[in-house]
């Protein structure tokens, strides 16, 4: 160990040991949160200020099919972040080609295209983009996706109707209109 110890002596270091350690994932989330720069259409909500690994995001699209609605997502960041992406779910039942009836979201950077260099900010921008530009070629709700390509006007009407709490094809959706 002689070699190591002399290397150590050459390196002037200063340190203190802590009682409870901050995990690398927590550090990264704190960094991501303090660098968050969200447009006025998005807001975060923290059930507890102490727990930054669990929070909600509200998206209010200001244009497109979903304008006038308010969409809530839960974010759960696990200890493997940023090796693994955050787990995101839509908390309301919405009629959307890329969101299924259980709230699962099809967004490439949340699964197959996730990279540790991506930040929480990137995920949030990605979610908002889904409402501005729904993607019918990657459907989770096949009926909605089919309608969007087959009959855009009908799709538009379905979205409006579902956002007000109405039913589309026998399925009742949550009212997401801004009160």
């Amino acid at each position: 160990m002689l070699k190591i110890w002399s290397m150590k002596e050459k390196q002037a270091a200063e340190g203190g040991s802590a009682k409870k350690k901050v995990t690398a994932a927590q550090l990264r989330v704190q960094k991501d949160l303090s660098e968050l720069s969200l447009p006025s259409t998005m807001k975060t909500h923290f059930p507890s200020a102490e727990d930054i690994m669990n929070f909600e995001l509200t998206v209010r699209p200001d244009e497109g099919f979903y304008q006038g609605g308010e969409f809530r997502f839960s974010f759960y960041v696990n200890p493997n972040f940023p090796h693994e992406p955050p787990k995101v779910k839509c908390l309301q039942k919405v009629y959307h080609p890329n969101i299924d009836l259980e709230g699962n979201v099809c967004l490439n950077i949340l699964r197959e295209d996730w990279k540790p260099v991506l930040s929480l900010n990137a995920v949030m921008i990605g979610l908002q983009y889904l409402f501005l530009e729904p993607n019918a070629s990657d459907p989770l709700n096949k009926d909605a996706a089919h309608q969007m390509t087959a009959n855009r006007e009908e799709f538009k009407r379905n979205v409006k109707h579902s956002m007000a709490g109405g039913s589309v094809a026998g399925e009742r959706f949550d009212c997401v209109l801004i009160k």
Binding site: A18, K21, Q30, S34, A49, I52
Partner: peptide
């Protein structure tokens, strides 16, 4: 404009706005 936390507690979070208000 620093944000400060311990392993278990948010002392002061300068951003996002909602956490700033809470802390």
């Amino acid at each position: 404009n620093p944000s400060l936390r311990t392993a278990s507690k948010s002392l002061y979070m300068a951003s996002p706005k909602e956490l700033e208000e809470m802390t």
